[in-house]
Design a protein around this nucleic acid. Sequence first.
DNA 1: AAGAATCCCAACCGCAAGTTG
DNA 2: GCAACTTGCGGTTGGGATTCT
Length: 329
Amino acid sequence: MGRSPCCDENGLKKGPWTTEEDQKLTEYIVKNGHGSWRALPKLAGLNRCGKSCRLRWTNYLRSDIKRGKFTPEEEQTILQLHSVLGNKWSAIAKHLPGRTDNEIKNFWNTHLKKKLIQMGFDPMTHRPRTDFFAALPQLIALANLRQLVEQRPWEDNTSSQVQADAVQAAKLEYLQCLLQSAAAIATSPSSSSINTIPTDLEQIGLLSPSQMSSLSSLSSPRILEGTNGQDFITGQLPDIQIPSSSFFEQPIINGSTQNSDYTANNCAGENSAHKPLFLSENSLPPLADFPISNLGDACSTSSCDADGNSAQLPIWSESFYDQFMSEFA
DNA sequence: AAGAATCCCAACCGCAAGTTG
DNA sequence: GCAACTTGCGGTTGGGATTCT
């Protein structure tokens, strides 16, 4: 397999395109089609290499290119597809009419990746990150939350119950994040990170000593051999519901997945006191709901409305978050 | 107001798969 | 089957634009 000669050779022009060059290229392609890219520059009267012409045409001059900011829908589509396809920008671009792979790649690198990292998710796996620094915001927030609950009795029973529920939900949420991470880690035989999770949980008061002992036993290889990372959890911690992994089973039709599964898939219709509010295992909530500054939202996810329908709301609603932040300001 | 820092994206580079003779 | 060539793709970068100090 040979390589095409570099543009540098023969003094071909590089760098930004002028309007005259754009015009020449466009006129030629509209009239004749691009044909052989290698031959095109000469035929079109351009002092560029074919590669440069192709890139300019496909990424900029084509008439069907959509310009402007990415819509939230496009953003979600990119996130979904990236969680399945990885950095297959051209494959992703096929599902976003008018967007080029280069544009999507740039958008990912400059916006989405940063958002995911900021939220504590690994941009490559779309799972919560497990290293200490990534989890630090959540750890701090939850530790503070615990302190708040213990040291400041609430004014009345109603607000106390509401806050206790919120704290419980937050704890469960974070526990879910850790357990998801554990499930991911479990597939990696070389990883030892899972051994640190029970310690983390105990230190921030998420688990009682008896729960700790149960969870500690989960580190055995036999239990962790579950095929989907769920078996070892569900039997041991009945209050924790792990959503099934449905995202990968959703076929992509007409440029988008059928499953808009950013919402928890296990809360609709449930009326339990402690609604489990969890991420679908392989998808993420809309990033639009996550201001980058809200580091405490890192493990937030969806909620249910009064009718039991899924709603794309962060578990840390704004009012709760505001109150939480004002307490510690 | 000005320099520094950061963001953003068009364009380049190099690799690999596909095609052709 | 092989080498030369073409095309497509993903990673990276240069530098202009914007924001911050």
